[in-house]
């Protein structure tokens, strides 16, 4: 079996409460494996331990027990971050820098220089569709634009693993769709993505595998198909079916020992409706 992109083994994190004898267990005996090339969603309500887990994987917080590895290397070591890009939740970057200066700064931190860095900055701005805003200071950026520049800095050094903490938090549906498309684009390029979110519908659209955290414990884990399939039921979607046909199908099912549980008209999502409406009126074009 190939080396997992992320391996978390027996991870526990306890935060002592200052001036009190009690402590808070943020993560309890967590085991997690993210294979290379996968998009893995870490789900859970606020305070469930998602961000703490990601911070431990990135070496920003030290574990109380257990270990975390990135491509087989101890993730507490600085060197392991050569292959990781990270976008924190609701990040603020240096407001006095322009989009291009921001990427130049982060590129230099990753050891990039000269023409290679300049070319990469152009590439990244193109990727997150901020080429027009390259010389604008971040002070004037919208929330969605900040998220996109955040994603660009995370990708500066072409990492093999990208960790995104609530990447669409506070972003409008159009911006959220753009970020989702970028994640799918990363997946196509073979980049592993580990993301945390509590927006279930979006996770369902992009993730291959999910883990659900509650009170620091991994309560469910598996592929989308495994987790979402309702056992012993089959869905058939018909177009142009007359009522008589539906009656015949129901009779056939009964004769075969099966049962029609539900019969309804498929619906679009509110998000899809919103996007279609705003795109049509030109509101979503930026």
């Amino acid at each position: 079996m190939s080396e997992p992109a992320v391996a978390v083994t027996g991870l526990t994190k306890v935060f002592p409460v200052p001036l009190q004898r009690r402590s808070i267990v943020a993560v309890r005996d967590l085991n997690l494996r993210v294979d290379a090339g996968q998009v893995y969603g870490l789900l859970g309500p606020n305070g469930s331990g998602k961000s703490t887990t990601l911070k431990i994987i990135l070496g920003l917080v030290s574990p109380t027990r257990g270990k975390t590895e990135i491509f087989g290397h101890d993730s507490s070591r600085v060197a392991s971050r050569e292959s990781v890009g990270f976008l924190p939740e609701s990040p603020y970057f240096y407001k006095y820098l322009t989009a291009a200066e921001t990427l130049r700064f982060y590129g230099k931190l990753c050891g990039m220089r000269g023409e290679r860095l300049s070319a990469r900055i152009d590439e990244l701005l193109e990727l997150v569709r901020l080429t027009e805003a390259r010389n604008r200071r971040l002070r004037g950026f919208s929330k969605g634009m900040l998220q996109r520049i955040g994603l660009a800095q995370a990708l500066a050094h072409e990492p093999q693993l990208v960790i995104l903490d609530e990447p669409t938090a506070g972003v409008d549906p159009a911006g959220s769709r753009e970020i989702r498309d970028l994640i799918l684009d990363l997946k196509q390029r073979g980049i592993t993505v580990l993301l945390s979110s509590h927006l279930l519908e979006q996770v369902q659209e992009v993730c291959d595998r999910v883990g659900i955290l509650a009170n620091g414990v991994l309560v469910r884990e598996g592929t989308m198909t495994e987790l979402l399939a309702v056992q012993n039921q089959t869905e058939v979607v018909l177009e142009g079916a007359r009522p008589e046909l539906l009656t015949q199908i129901a009779a056939l099912a009964t004769n075969a020992g099966a049962r029609v549980i539900d019969q309804r008209t498929p619906q679009t999502t509110l998000e899809q409706l919103f996007l279609e409406a705003t795109e049509r009126s030109g509101d979503a074009s930026r």
């Binding site: 971050r81 050569e82 990270f86 240096y94």
Partner: peptide, 9 residues
Amino acid sequence: TIYTILAKP
């Protein structure tokens, strides 16, 4: 911003 910096090498 410190997270984005220290998450780099």
